[in-house]
Amino acid sequence: MENEDKQEEAFDAFAQTGSAQVYLLRLYITGMTPNSKRAVENVKRICEQHLKGRYELEVIDIYQQPTLAQGEQIIAAPTLIKKLPHPLRRLIGDMSNTEKVLLGLDLRPK
């Protein structure tokens, strides 16, 4: 339910701005491991650079919410899930390879 609300909000935002698609992103990390820290930094940086104003990022620590790991089919950490726009994508790793992240987010033509 929460998800849907957020999706609606995102759609609203998209409708209001009238610009390119709105991105709904979730980043699943495991506590404060180096990989997790790097991933958070990298994702934030990339989003600010390429999706400024049209993204929504949620960082979730699966140590805190282990049930989410099953529900979201998380196996690797860190994992970035692009919920919107479709298709759904999973990006795993510390997001240090910006090219690959952009490719995964469909921000670069393949």
Partner: peptide
């Protein structure tokens, strides 16, 4: 998409 270093901690947690 693999974008760098990762582990299977997700699986472990599950």
């Amino acid at each position: 998409e693999e974008t760098g270093e990762y582990d299977l901690e997700g699986l472990f947690i599950r």
